[in-house]
């Protein structure tokens, strides 16, 4: 929390109470909405989780730490509620967390200065996608955790997920951002 009202925003890595609250809210939202998911017809394992949009969104809007927390805690809680233990797929929770982290960093360095509405929304979508792509590469650890072959990992795990999350990143993230922008201006923090 900046004590000098002239400062524009709180620094990226500061854990202010604002960051903590938004991180917690993000995780809770992700956990609750994450229970809504549907499978793309014709595929047996492409599972679309709309709430995933929250992870890059929180990263971009409330900083990498909030994004990281949202992804990590949110996904762990989802796994727990759904039933496969909190840690069983720890590397996927980590990938979620990295998405938020990367989105936060990328946004801060690239897009935070963009003024034009349309341009920003495009940037937001692209950053969300890039962050997702990079972060979920880390699930290659499945080769080690589950003993999958590279092909299998690409075909069964990474590919489908990239497909579904691409949709989410490009459709829902900009929509969220478009609605939040004017509100954040009005709240004036």
């Amino acid at each position: 929390m900046s004590t000098d009202s002239a400062l524009p925003r709180t620094p990226m890595w500061e854990i202010s109470s604002r960051v903590v609250v938004f991180a917690a809210v993000g995780a809770a939202l992700y956990a609750v909405l994450g229970l809504i998911s549907f499978t793309i017809p014709g595929t047996q394992n492409v599972d679309v989780r709309p709430a995933f949009a929250l992870v890059p969104f929180f990263g971009m809007r409330f900083g990498p730490i909030a994004g990281f927390f949202t992804g990590l805690v949110g996904n762990i809680v989802i796994d727990q509620i759904k039933g496969y233990g909190a840690l069983t797929y720890w590397n996927w929770s980590l990938a979620n967390a990295l998405t938020g982290l990367l989105a936060g960093i990328l946004f801060a360095v690239i897009a935070s200065r963009i003024q034009k509405e349309g341009l920003r929304l495009v940037a937001v979508g692209v950053i969300a996608w890039v962050a997702t792509f990079l972060a979920f590469l880390s699930t290659i650890t499945d080769m080690w955790v589950q003993g999958l072959t590279l092909e299998a990992w690409a075909a069964v795990a990474f590919g489908p997920l990239l497909l579904s999350n691409t949709l989410v990143a490009l459709i829902l993230v900009p929509a969220l951002d478009a609605v939040w922008e004017p509100i954040s201006k009005r709240i004036g923090r």
Binding site: M1, T3, S5, A6, G188, R189
Partner: peptide, 25 residues
């Protein structure tokens, strides 16, 4: 105001004997 909200404050605002601007939330 002014610590959490970005706002300009003028005039005398003393709480607990000290100016608010000089005390943290």
């Amino acid at each position: 105001v002014p610590h959490a909200y970005r706002a300009e404050v003028t005039g005398r605002v003393h709480v607990g004997g000290k100016p608010v601007a000089e005390q943290s939330i």
